[in-house]
Amino acid sequence: MSKKVLIIDDSKTARREIVRLVHNQGLMAFEAENGRVALETLKKRTDIGLIFCDINMPEMNGLEFLQALRADPAFQETPVVMLTSEAAEDVLEQAKQYGVKGWILKPAQSSSVKALMEKYCS
């Protein structure tokens, strides 16, 4: 069975952009508006194969989410790709410390998202 995709972004518009691309690949997408909600979603699901995560969010931002995610042994290897509107090297370096697989600049290019899903969700 194909893995599912989790999209974390406080903007519904931004989430929908990725959701459409996920659906185009025939995969199922789950959404969360911040890191805290994402962690709650992950507690209920064991079939998330790829996470797209925004950086700048209220309540729990992307870096805080990454830290919490990797602290859980069940999710230490779960692929995470950062969704970002800025190519800020300092932020991305911090994210790399938590084992992110890469980042995508918003608005996300369909080819980039598709390649990631093919790699991690097949």
Binding site: S11, K12, A14, T84, S85, E86, A88
Partner: peptide, 21 residues
């Protein structure tokens, strides 16, 4: 209206974040 509000906020986010460099 909720969609337009969300998009307006996201536009500012992308504009400022994309200008940081």
């Amino acid at each position: 209206s909720a969609d337009y509000l969300d998009w307006a906020a996201e536009i500012l986010n992308r504009t400022l974040a994309g200008s940081k460099t």
